[in-house]
Design a protein around this nucleic acid. Structure first.
Lengths: 224, 224
DNA sequence: TTTTGTATTATTGTATACAAATATACATGC
DNA sequence: GCATGTATATTTGTATACAATAATACAAAA
């Protein structure tokens, strides 16, 4: 085996992990609707794998609460309701501020630099109106703060919540006004963290979540 | 088959569910230490089942973050550190108050009655110093409030946190002084909820968590 | 002695086989 | 027509078989 092969091994991910991601994404994005029954045999055929890794993915989705397990009948999709989405925003409002405060206390220079670069890229893509990149960078911005908080539970919980909101976030960021406002808010949070102002980081993060929530609410009201 | 057998069917739970509970409990209670490797084959032999349901249980534990998955090597136990426990209390401080407030808004008369009965039993067992029953009732008290909050995410998150702290809670409740204080605090929370005083329910619940945290901290300081 | 290559062993990853449970279709009786 | 019982088909639940990967032991060379 050559040296290059040893240095660049392929990811070598297990099948159940990939299948889990596919199914989770299909549930989050509404490909599978709440109430849909997922069949091991059918998915097994569709994806061209045996039932074993599919069952393993099911167990993860079940644990996550995205599907409900019916003994000897398989799993039915749960998905998210309007209320669930609002609920997530309410809980985030409680947790994101705390996370930003703790991140301010624990952040490393490298993470701070990464945060800065992320914001610079956000600025670039905001001007270009590249929604896909903006969504990616937004996730990255928050992800760094989650990790810097040093709390495995906050990381796990908020990462999931953020992931669940992926669709709605893209909608928000496709509005140039909201994208610009997001950038300004991110900059404020970054500067607070950089200057080690815990309180301000907490307050600005809470405002950021509140503004995101308000934007969605307003958008929804208009649509009705 | 007798009629009695038909009226009281066994739960008919799947194996992977039972195995998951066994393993989770072993991790939470420190039977498996952080760093321990869990082997499918060994557990399969020990428990007298095939590897399939064990793998399914592993996938749930993995998703929960209680074990870390190593491709082609199995899973290693993660468990909880001192910091993790403190961390859980910090996060609960943010979430339990909100949950109590929302429970006050949504609680049903039946749930209120159940809460009342739980506290009456708590009073009974506090006088008898029955720690096991007190731990069970404490969980039940909080569980009712979680459910009454109507938020599937709060239910899921806080239920887990509460479960993780089972061991430490039993230690607290085995101190008659702390048990009495817990009862008084629960009563206060119950009365706020009953009289639909959201703010007070939130404040008292936060105090309750804060007091529980302080007690643990003090206990730890003494031990050192 | 240390290192490295190789054979062996053990473990996981996936597929498949069979048992158990459930749903479905259809016939039978009312 | 409607309900009920039964046979069939389908699906899940579990066990097992085989393949792939990684760890281990050991021998050979530097």
């Amino acid at each position: 085996m050559s040296r290059i092969d040893r240095n660049y091994p392929e990811p070598q991910r297990s099948l159940h992990g990939k299948i889990y991601e596919i199914l989770e994404s299909n549930i989050i994005n509404g490909v599978y609707k709440p109430g849909d029954c997922l069949s091991e045999s059918k998915l097994s055929e569709e994806l061209g794998v045996s039932r074993t890794p599919i069952r393993e993915a099911f167990r993860q989705l079940e644990h996550e609460g995205l599907v409900v397990y019916k003994p000897n009948r398989g799993v039915v999709v749960r998905g998210f309701s309007e209320e669930d989405i609002q609920d997530i925003y309410k809980i985030r409002l409680m947790l994101e501020g705390m996370t930003a405060r703790r991140a301010t206390e624990n952040i490393t220079p490298e993470q701070l630099e990464e945060l800065k670069e992320t914001i610079e890229l956000e600025e670039f893509y905001t001007n270009k109106n590249d929604v896909k990149q903006l969504a990616r960078l937004d996730s990255h911005f928050h992800e760094i703060i989650y990790i810097a908080s040093g709390s495995r539970f906050l990381i796990k919980t908020l990462r999931k919540f953020h992931h669940y909101l992926g669709k709605i976030r893209s909608i928000s960021l496709s509005d140039p006004e909201r994208a610009k406002k997001t950038l300004i808010e991110h900059k404020g949070i970054f500067e607070s963290i950089q200057s080690k102002d815990r309180e301000m980081a907490e307050i600005l993060m809470e405002q950021h979540i509140r503004n995101a929530t308000r934007y969605i609410e307003k958008k929804k009201d208009k649509a009705e």
